[in-house]
């Protein structure tokens, strides 16, 4: 089971953390929980989805516990302003995209991961992180705008590289 799921789960942990070491710590913690609570898995949904949920919750706990992340979780509203431009993507390697997501400030990063990738609603995110759904919405909008701006920049830089810097 570990061999089957470890790589995908490390991909998830990687998106929530800032270093590969932290990601592996979360993965390790998550798999310990998975194996110790395997009896609680009722075979109702996909095993992968169940493990994924445990990994996400473990990652969130890790962020709350770890001061480096906790202190930077949420920015004041005026810190960043959403970019209006909305140019959807952009062919990008998955690892590069994950790398860009990891460069988001921790609060944005977490909310972006939870909403855009895991599919949590803002109300659920509010409950998970102890914030209002409005805060979740606004932080998500800023995270998204920031990411798009980086993607655009990345795209331009890539084109320059491809055409010999012209």
């Amino acid at each position: 089971m570990y061999e089957h799921f470890a790589e995908a789960m490390l991909g998830i942990c990687y998106r929530y953390t800032k270093s590969i070491k932290d990601a592996e710590d979360v993965l390790q913690e998550g798999f310990v929980k998975v194996f110790l609570s395997l009896k609680q898995y009722r075979c109702e949904g996909e095993l992968g989805a169940w493990i994924r949920r445990i990994m996400v919750n473990t990652a969130l706990n890790f962020l709350k516990r770890n001061r480096n992340y906790r202190d930077q979780m949420f920015f004041p509203q005026e810190y960043l302003h959403p970019v209006v431009s909305d140019d959807p993507v952009i062919k990008l390697q998955a690892k590069d995209l994950a790398g860009l997501i990891r460069q988001l400030p921790p609060g944005y990063q977490t909310i972006f991961n939870l909403h855009a990738i895991e599919g949590y609603s803002h109300v659920e995110i509010g409950e998970l992180l102890g914030i209002t759904d409005g805060t979740s919405r606004s932080q998500y909008a800023r995270a998204r705008a920031l990411l798009i701006s980086w993607l655009q920049k990345y795209s331009v830089d890539n084109k320059k590289e491809n055409y010999g810097g012209k």
Partner: peptide, 24 residues
């Protein structure tokens, strides 16, 4: 945008180091 990001991230995998399993 969200669809593309989700699709890309769902396929994203990383190989963990050997030490992780030993620690688990």
């Amino acid at each position: 945008f969200e669809k593309n990001v989700k699709k890309a991230m769902d396929e994203f995998k990383l190989h963990p180091s050997e030490a992780v399993w030993q620690k688990v």
